[in-house]
Structure formats: structure tokens, C-alpha cells
Design a protein around this nucleic acid. Structure first.
Lengths: 136, 136
DNA sequence: CTCGACCCTGGACCTAGGTCTAGGGTTTAT
DNA sequence: ATAAACCCTAGACCTAGGTCCAGGGTCGAG
């Protein structure tokens, strides 16, 4: 038993071709096939695909998403290694979160200036993602 | 006076062709030209371009970035409108930040399970971006 | 005055991530 | 038993976001 590609696509909110594409790219595993060569997916494929779509919206490439998902699969392998990789990803996430937060406060500031009809000051939006470690 | 395209590219860390491309896409304004038809950019173009690159890493498309940057330019126009747009972007950012935070705690959890050699539990990574409002 | 390092335009080319089409088999409802 | 609605593969096609020529002008050092 399993889900046909159409059902998975419907529940995950993607095109069936996207699922075949993800399979070619190894983002999702190769599903079993029934006697007619139809793909039969385990139910949790739906969650996995949704995870992929959300992670993409957050700026991750399919390759990065694959790495995130592989972390748990490899778990059996070298645990300390997985741990290190996970913590490295955490650092990257912290950086992204900080950037989004400063972008957010820039927008809040802009909105306030606007409602104040106050003085403009130097553009808060451009300030938002300034430097934080890049060269110069 | 102003910066040639090569200088801007160098300081912003991008290709000169990228700057011409951004100009065609209206991500940066059309610069002045000198007597030889060379582009001459104001110094703050560098910040603007860096902002663009950072925002892209955070998952924004060039079109979205243009909108963010236009918020301040339009400021003179209808202030209340700009304010509303800014606050709408703030909501979107909050959602992104929340997603990244749950992804982060999934990874931290995974790292801990790993160092504990503890029981595996259901995959924390897939849990990370579950539902939060999507259909089903 | 000429060589190398710039700059210009127009258009071809590239990668990522899909999406669509053609040609053909399967399953289901009537 | 046949039409609608699925499924399959291979391969063409598409958008976003660049990147790379070709062919030609410009500027500074020696």
C-alpha cells in the first residue's frame, strides 16, 4: 500500500512533475513501484515535500535542504559528525535570524517615521543589513 | 564625480554585468554618464547593492527587494500607504523568523539526541516546519 | 603613440528549479 | 467496452538571476 504520485502532489501542494524532479535530484527517495510501474509513496513523503517548500521560502537551495534532511538519515553513521554538522547549521540559522530581525526593525522604524511625519534620517532600510562582518 | 562601474562592482563584491543587469531590472537607478558615456555612480550604490545581495540570501526575490527599497523612495508620496506596506512586510518577516527559529530548535534537538546516544524519537527536522497554517 | 586596463552595447549562454508535451499504458465508472 | 482520469518516460521549454562574448571606444603609463 502507498500513495500514488497524484495524491502526494495534491496533499503537498505541488505539481506531480515536481515530485519526479525531486526524485531525480535525490531530494526525496525513490518510492516503491506497483505491478504497473506506478510510484507508491509512504505517507510521510507529504511532510517531507512540505518541508522542502517551506525551507525554499526561507532561502535554502535544494542542495542545502538535502543536507538538512540527510542529517537524520545518517544518524546511525558517525554521530559526532552529524552533531557537528547540525551545530554548524545552527550558526548559519542564527545569522539569518539576526539579519531578518534587523530588517524587521528597519521597517518598524520606517513605519514610525512615517506616522510621525517626523524627520527622515538616513535610510533605515539600507542600514538594516549593513556590514555585519563582510569585508570593508 | 562618481564611481565607475568597476569600482562599484569591486566594493560591492559583484560582477560588473550584475550591476548592468540590476539597472535593466530597475533594482538600482540609472546612474549619470560622463562625456564618454561611462556610468558614474553615487557612493551609496555600494550599500544598496550589498543590501540586495544579503536580502537575496534571506530568500527575497529581486522584485521583493525592489519593493522594500521603494518604500523609502515613495515616502514623500502617500505616507500612510507606505506605513501599511512596511507593516505588512513586518508580518511576513515575523513568519520567516518563526520558521527559522523552529528549524533551529529542531537542529539543536537533533544535536542533543546525537550526543546523548539517546532514543531517536520522530524526526525533529521534519517537525520543524510543520503546518503553521497551511491547509490540512 | 601604443599597450593594457577600462568602459559601452547587444545578444548568446548558463544554472536552478520547475513545467509541459508527445506517445503510450492502466484503472474506473458507466 | 469505452471514455475520463490516472500513470510512465524522454526530452523540450520556461523564468529568474546572472555571466560571457564580440566588436568597438577611452584613458593612463611608459
Amino acid at each position: 500500500m502507498g500513495l500514488t504520485i497524484g495524491k502526494v502532489a495534491e496533499h503537498a501542494g505541488v505539481n506531480v512533475d515536481t515530485l519526479r524532479y525531486y526524485e531525480r535530484q535525490d531530494v526525496i527517495g525513490k518510492p516503491l513501484r506497483n505491478g504497473s510501474n506506478y510510484r507508491l509513496y509512504p505517507a510521510d513523503t507529504i511532510r517531507r515535500v512540505r518541508f522542502v517548500k517551506r525551507a525554499q521560502e526561507l532561502g535554502f537551495s535544494l542542495t542545502e535542504i538535502k543536507e538538512l534532511l540527510e542529517l537524520r538519515v545518517n544518524k546511525n553513521a558517525s554521530c559526532a559528525n552529524v552533531r557537528d554538522q547540525a551545530l554548524a547549521k545552527v550558526d548559519a540559522l542564527n545569522e539569518k535570524i539576526r539579519s531578518l530581525q534587523s530588517m524587521r526593525s528597519a521597517l518598524v522604524k520606517l513605519a514610525n517615521e512615517c506616522s510621525n511625519h517626523g524627520p527622515v534620517g538616513d535610510c533605515p532600510i539600507l542600514d538594516a543589513l549593513d556590514e555585519r562582518g563582510s569585508a570593508i
